[in-house]
Design a protein around this nucleic acid. Structure first.
Ligand SMILES: [Zn+2]
Length: 358
DNA sequence: TAGATTTGACCCTGC
DNA sequence: CGCAGGGTCAAATCT
């Protein structure tokens, strides 16, 4: 059963059964290996998630302005990026109009390469269009009235390009060669044991970083200067937010993704309902020589339950995978091209907006 | 020696 | 069912 390895003879035998434990789902009690599983499961952190979520609701986070991003600018360009999530237990979808305001602010705040993204989770999102300039009046201000806890995430990318380090320590745990956008993909994970933040760097064939995707938030402060962010607790929200920074043509995308796949049977209306990965590729191909920065936060559920789902499925399916309970936000903000926002709540497509053609 | 990186294999999901 | 793409693991290697 646990032998599915086709290992080449050149292997030092030790490799013969690498992750036996993982695959063993036959039904053994395997308690010893449980630890490993735990770690893997840890990615989802069912328990913690709940806790944090609760806290989130109870705790109101206020958006604070960037203190001194200059410090980070030196080496950590990306450190400047600020992410703030404000979750309010107040169930009021009253911020809707606020969005409009945000839009302007964003435009104002966003200069050249600075992008400010404000997103109100679950029900409202604000996407800042292209800072670069004239971006059509396409301000995606979608607000779905049904989300009790609006989360405000503010992210700022001082230097859109290349973010060698955002102030955290990353450990590379994998690399993949991709064909679509010819290049490679590097997978990084925060070195903090308690932190499940991940980062994916997409490089083109020449080695240029074309895309950076952040997953989850750090559950700790940066090793160095204190960014003075209280992401500590919010970190766990499992929403997926993607930011794409492209000087020439900015495309901001916010994806609150959890696992709508179950009900995602229904294709998104206006948007070219493309699978997650497809989406990425699609957008990636857009830019040449530019770095896109995206951030993904899981929201209570798993963003992309790819690996180790077996275990979790069997044990946590009840609590984790809630079919039909996954709010999904897909916001595409392409400067000139237009903005397309797709919000999927449960299995209902809330809205899709194309900046130029709605 | 420890920690990080490299790299091949493996698993999962979607088509 | 099989394939392709994507993501992760872990042994080997490097620093
Ligand atoms: Zn971290």
């Amino acid at each position: 059963m646990a032998e599915r390895h086709e290992s080449s003879d050149a292997l030092p035998t030790a490799k013969l059964h690498p992750r036996k434990g993982e695959q063993e789902e036959g039904g053994d009690g395997d308690e010893d290996d449980d630890e490993e599983r735990k770690q893997r499961l840890g990615e989802f952190q069912p328990g913690e998630l709940k806790s944090s979520v609760s806290e989130l609701r109870q705790t109101q986070l206020e958006t604070l302005t960037a203190p001194s991003t200059q410090e980070f600018s030196e080496n950590d360009q990306f450190a400047g990026l600020q992410l703030e999530s404000v979750s309010q237990s107040i169930d009021g979808a009253e911020l809707q109009e606020q969005l409009g305001l945000s839009h302007q602010e964003i435009l104002a705040s966003v200069t050249n390469q600075d992008i400010l993204i404000q997103k109100q989770s679950q029900s409202q999102l604000t996407v800042c269009p292209t800072p670069f300039s004239e971006l059509s009046p396409t301000s995606v201000t979608q607000s779905i009235s049904s989300a009790p806890s609006p989360i405000l995430i503010e992210q700022r990318v001082p230097h859109g390009k290349t973010s060698a380090s955002d102030g955290y320590n990353w450990r590379k745990y994998g690399q993949k060669q991709v064909k679509s956008p010819q290049g490679s993909r590097s997978y990084y994970r925060c070195t903090y044991s308690e932190c499940y933040a991940k980062k994916i760097e997409c490089c083109d064939h020449s080695g240029h970083v074309t895309d950076i995707v952040y997953k989850s938030q750090h559950t700790h402060d940066p090793p160095r200067k204190s960014i003075c962010i209280k992401e500590n607790k919010l970190a766990l929200s499992a929403e997926c937010v993607r930011y794409s920074v492209v000087p020439a043509e900015h495309s901001c995308r916010t994806v609150n993704d959890s696992e709508v796949s179950t009900s995602s049977k229904e294709p998104i209306q206006e948007t070219p309902s493309v699978p997650e990965r497809k989406r990425q590729s699609t957008s990636d191909s857009d830019d040449n020589g530019d770095v896109k920065i995206k951030e993904e936060n899981g929201d209570g559920d798993e963003p992309e339950p790819k690996r180790r789902m077996k275990k979790s499925k069997s044990e946590y399916s009840a609590s984790l995978s809630k079919p039909g309970k996954k709010p999904k936000f897909v916001v595409h903000a392409a400067g000139d091209v237009g903005i397309s926002a797709t919000i999927v709540h449960n299995h209902d497509v809330k809205m899709t907006t194309h900046g130029l053609s709605v």
